[in-house]
Simulated scan of single mutants.
Amino acid sequence: MSRRGNCFDNAPIESFWGSLKNELVYHREFMTRSQAQKEITEYIEIFYNRQRTQERLDYLSPAAFTQRFHLRRIGA
């Protein structure tokens, strides 16, 4: 990856940036940089990673998917 001409190289992070902008940034007006940083951090740490379900993760949140993965690994 990371070679010129590899169209899938940045696909996951580009998808994330699109979600972040559509779900938070475009709907808010931040008064200060620190307010923007705080709210974006909360979005990522609380909503995106712990609550937002994602189709590619079998409609689980990333946190729930990770927990399920580790439980299956321990039980195997």
Results as ranks from 00 to 15, higher is better:
R4P: 12
R28S: 05
R73A: 03
T41W: 10
T32F: 04
E55G: 06
H70P: 00
Q35K: 05
R52H: 04
N22G: 09
F47G: 01
E29R: 09
E42V: 12
F47C: 01
Q35F: 01
R52N: 06
A11N: 06
E39W: 05
T53A: 07
P62W: 02
G5S: 12
E55K: 15
T41N: 07
N49L: 03
E23Y: 00
F16E: 02
H70C: 02
R73S: 09
L24I: 10
W17H: 13
F8N: 15
T66E: 15
L71S: 11
D58C: 03
I44A: 03
K38Y: 08
G5A: 08
E55V: 12
N49R: 07
L57F: 12
R56Q: 12
F16W: 14
N22L: 02
I74F: 10
Q35Y: 00
D58N: 14
G5D: 09
K21E: 14
D58F: 01
F30E: 04
E14Y: 05
N10Y: 04
Q51F: 09
I46M: 07
V25Q: 11
R56G: 02
M1E: 12
F8H: 14
E42M: 09
Q67F: 06
S15T: 11
D58L: 08
A63Y: 02
Y26G: 05
T32I: 15
E55W: 14
R52P: 07
Q54I: 09
C7H: 04
R68I: 15
A36R: 02
F16P: 01
F8L: 14
I13F: 08
S61F: 10
I13Y: 02
H27F: 05
T32Y: 01
L57Y: 06
A36S: 06
F30V: 06
N49P: 12
Y59S: 10
I74T: 14
S61E: 08
R52G: 02
N22R: 14
Q37S: 09
G18F: 05
S61N: 04
M1C: 01
T32K: 00
E39Y: 07
P62G: 05
Y26I: 11
S19R: 13
E23I: 08
T32V: 11
S19A: 11
R56K: 12
E45N: 14
A36F: 00
Q54H: 15
E14Q: 10
G18T: 13
F16V: 08
R72D: 07
Q37C: 12
R50V: 00
T41Y: 08
Q54W: 07
A63Q: 07
R28K: 12
A76R: 14
H27S: 12
N6V: 07
V25W: 13
A36T: 12
E14S: 09
R52T: 10
L24V: 13
Q35N: 06
E42R: 05
S15R: 09
E45W: 07
F30I: 08
F16L: 11
F16C: 03
R4G: 06
E39H: 06
W17A: 00
Y59Q: 14
F16H: 03
L24Y: 03
Q67W: 03
